[in-house]
Lab assay of single mutants.
Amino acid sequence: DEVTIHLGDKTIRVDGLDKELLEILKELARRGADEEELRKEIERWER
């Protein structure tokens, strides 16, 4: 499953996201997290 996250004018595509992680990323994005913060969160989950 590829998920596309839209952040204002930026788009991040991620393969096979965990549903819980997806919810966390959506919440972070709502709070104004930037792409770098979201990537760090994704990397934390992948470990």
Rank of each mutant, 00 (worst) to 15 (best):
I12V: 07
E41D: 00
D34Q: 10
G32L: 01
I42R: 03
V14D: 03
R31A: 10
I12C: 06
E37Q: 11
R13C: 04
H6A: 10
G8L: 07
W45V: 01
L21H: 02
D15V: 14
E43C: 08
K26T: 09
A33W: 05
R30G: 05
R44F: 08
D9G: 08
R31G: 04
L22I: 15
E27V: 09
I5Y: 00
L22T: 05
D9W: 02
A29G: 03
T4D: 10
D15K: 14
R39F: 08
E36R: 08
G8Y: 04
H6G: 07
E27N: 13
I24A: 05
A33K: 03
V14Y: 09
K40T: 07
H6Y: 03
D15Y: 04
L7I: 14
E23L: 13
E2Q: 13
R13E: 08
A29P: 00
K10E: 07
A33H: 04
L28C: 01
L25H: 00
E41A: 14
V14G: 05
W45T: 01
D9F: 04
E37F: 06
I24G: 01
L28A: 02
G16N: 12
A29S: 07
D9A: 06
K10R: 09
L28Q: 01
G8Q: 11
R30E: 04
K19A: 12
A33Q: 02
D1W: 08
E27S: 14
I12H: 03
E35Q: 06
V3F: 15
E20R: 14
D34Y: 03
V3M: 14
T4F: 14
V3Y: 15
E20K: 14
L21G: 00
E37G: 04
R30T: 04
I12E: 02
L17D: 02
A29D: 01
V3S: 13
R44Q: 09
K26L: 15
K19P: 15
R31D: 04
W45Y: 06
G16I: 12
R13G: 05
E46G: 14
G32N: 03
D15P: 15
T11G: 14
L38K: 01
L28M: 15
D15S: 15
G16S: 11
D1H: 12
R39P: 00
E46I: 15
L7T: 05
L7R: 02
L22A: 07
R44V: 05
A29M: 15
E46Q: 15
G16E: 08
G32D: 01
L21C: 02
